[in-house]
């Protein structure tokens, strides 16, 4: 992605960072506005309006004054559910990515600083972590998470956050380890060492400031991937469970029932929200990269 986002056939160029910030800001605003919209419309995210939300045939309503994006097969408000679903995307995506960043940075620092067998061990550990297939491992853990009575042992939201963080910290650790290794014997660290700084002091004062902008960029690269991961798990039925709305389980609902052929917003609502969340974060990360980390080797 280039520094500026240019649209074919147009002269106008928008700075990618501002455009990404605007899009992502809109997505965050939509998520924050969810309770407000629910209050104004009087439609909770799981409330079913069987008389006003369904027609005589029991089919969902198309967009109208009461249901701005129409209703779904249970007579629930699609707009309110999309906003709450976006909220879930962020409630899962933000902590999962941040947790992965913290764990990955810590492990990457230690691995990058250590030599010999510690470094070897880390390399082999990476191989094993990468060999775990994400969705299937998530399926295994979701299966284990069912107690004898069929109820989950820990809340599914927490499990989804942990699984996603458990798979994305690796990429942070690999990035941080690489940078730490390249700094380990450089003039910056040597100067600090000569002046008598301890290893934690060196890592904190000399290494971390170099790493910070790069992990900030990488955080914004991982965030959309993790939002998609949550949506995919929920789509498959092992993430956020209905009736709690998530963009993934709403898309699954629209697909399974086929009702989106009658009421397109059933699919378009959550689909567009997911697309905008991912696109906004992608543009934001491209903008951040050109601002904070112009010489990065990351190219995608």
């Amino acid at each position: 992605m280039s520094d500026t986002l240019s649209l074919p056939g147009r002269r106008a160029r928008i700075d990618a960072l501002s455009f990404g910030l605007i899009l992502s800001g809109l997505v965050v605003a939509a998520a924050l506005a969810a309770p407000l919209v629910a209050w104004v419309t009087g439609h909770g995210p799981t409330d079913q309006f069987r008389t006003t939300g369904l027609d005589q045939m029991g089919l969902p309503m198309r967009p109208n004054a009461e249901f701005l994006l129409g209703s779904d097969g249970f007579g629930r408000d699609v707009l309110v559910r999309v906003l709450y679903g976006t909220r879930i995307s962020l409630i899962v995506g933000l902590p999962a990515t941040t947790l992965a960043m913290l764990v990955g940075t810590l492990i990457g620092l230690v691995a990058g600083w250590s030599r010999g067998w510690g470094d070897q061990l880390f390399g082999r550990f990476m191989d094993v972590m990468i060999a775990f297939p994400f969705i299937l491992t998530a399926l295994s853990l979701a299966t284990i998470n069912r107690g004898a009575d069929g109820q989950p042992r820990i809340p599914p939201e927490a499990l989804v956050v942990l699984v996603i963080a458990g798979f994305s910290w690796i990429y942070f650790a690999r990035l941080v380890r690489g940078i730490t290794r390249s700094l380990r014997d450089g003039p910056l660290v040597n100067a600090a060492r000569v002046s008598g700084a301890s290893v934690p002091q060196i890592l904190w004062r000399e290494v971390l400031p170099v790493i910070l902008p790069k992990i900030a960029v990488f955080w914004s690269v991982q965030l959309p991937a993790n939002i998609v991961a949550e949506a995919t798990l929920s789509f498959l039925g092992v993430g956020i469970n209905p009736p709690t709305p998530s963009l993934g389980n709403m898309i699954a609902d629209a697909q399974r029932s086929g009702l989106y052929q009658v009421q397109p917003w059933l699919l378009l609502g959550p689909g567009l929200a997911l697309f905008l969340a991912v696109a906004g974060a992608n543009i934001l990360s491209a903008g951040l990269r050109s601002r904070l980390d112009p010489h990065s080797a990351l190219r995608v």
């Binding site: 959309p224 998609v228 949506a231 995919t232 789509f235 993934g248 898309i251 699954a252 629209a254 697909q255 989106y260 699919l267 689909g271 997911l274 697309f275 991912v278 696109a279 992608n282």
Partner: peptide, 11 residues
């Protein structure tokens, strides 16, 4: 890149 599989498949 911005269209997840769950969406592109249905489309």
């Amino acid at each position: 890149m911005a269209t997840p599989l769950i969406l592109s498949g249905i489309l």
